[in-house]
Design a binder for these strands. Structure first.
Length: 289
DNA sequence: TTGCAGGGGTCAA
DNA sequence: TTGACCCCTGCA
């Protein structure tokens, strides 16, 4: 990985296994949008940035080399060797097919609070609407940011959301999820749930901790652990993955518990990576519908 | 135009 | 284990 600063950008050469479209459109994040030129603009660490990747060269606009090294390298999971993971998982022909299709998906390491609130909002909801609600929440409570002549809003911090009520959140039209957001903010603010500790806990302990929050069940907890806490063994089971595993590996009556055990045994420490490829493949190809 | 089904689940009984 | 759930969107 060779890093070169240029104007307000950072150019990184010798990048492997990274495709921005597959990474940002595979459903793991909700704050990235495609530009007309094919690049992606998104917000993280209270900063809007623009990312493009041609061949093996990645260009990130609006950051410094220091910010790349301390934040974005990790956010984009560039230090994980995906070749090893792919080799590990390629014994499974279905995952191999899904990996060929969704080539270059990186499992992002997002900010935990944002990831948590976003996936609380995601329950029984469609992706465009999830994006809209997250965006409105940011506009209401987040910092105003400027980039490329446009206005963006950072995802609000815990302090910025501290004290919000269900009534305050009514403009989001998030429905019953508003109460869950309030509960999450309160439990984090009071120290009942400490997000910073999650990475240091075992997968099982961390999941238990997250599920203390209302609106956080097994699926949402697994998403938060996989997409923001480095727990690549987390295997979120949603309707798509459920249908896929039932069809390809088990039977149509298989329950979540059985699917979960199967994933842990079959895909092991990289179950979450397999899940994300299978999910993306299933959803894009409308498998099982 | 209206009505209905379903959406990356979770809660409570 | 099962139904209800807030609200929006897509589709007859």
């Amino acid at each position: 990985m060779k890093i070169t600063p240029k104007n307000n950008s950072v150019i990184i050469e010798n990048i492997s296994d990274f495709d921005p479209t597959h990474t940002f459109m595979c459903g793991q994040c909700f704050r990235w949008d495609k530009e007309d030129d094919g690049s992606y603009t998104g917000i993280a660490f209270s900063k809007p940035v623009n990312i493009s990747c041609e061949k093996n060269t990645l260009v990130i606009k609006n950051i410094t080399p220091d910010e790349f090294n301390s934040q974005w390298k990790y956010y984009l999971d560039l230090e994980t060797d995906y070749n090893t993971i792919k080799n590990f998982l390629s014994f499974d022909q279905n995952v191999k097919t899904a990996m060929d299709f969704g080539w270059g998906i990186k499992i992002l390491n997002q900010e935990i609070f944002e990831c948590l609130i976003s996936f609380i909002i995601s329950t029984q909801n469609a992706i465009p609407r999830i994006k809209k609600i997250v965006s409105t929440l940011s506009q209401m409570y987040g910092k105003k940011l400027e980039f490329g002549g446009k206005t963006y809003y950072a995802f609000p911090s815990i302090d910025e959301l501290s004290g919000v009520t269900e009534d305050d959140l009514a403009p989001l039209k998030a429905g019953y999820r508003a109460a869950y957001i309030v509960d999450a903010v309160n439990k984090i603010k009071s120290g009942e749930v400490i997000l910073e500790n999650l990475k240091n806990l075992s997968y099982t302990e961390a999941k238990k901790e997250l599920m203390k929050i209302k609106g956080v069940g097994p699926k949402v907890a697994d998403c938060v652990l996989l997409f923001s806490c480095c727990k690549k063994e987390a295997f979120p089971i949603d309707v798509w993955v459920k249908r896929t595993v039932q069809t390809l590996y088990l039977n149509e009556n298989a329950k979540e518990k059985e699917i979960s055990s199967f994933a842990a045994e079959h895909f092991g420490e990289f179950a979450g990576v397999a899940q994300q490829y299978l999910f993306y493949y299933a959803r894009e190809n409308k498998l099982g519908i």
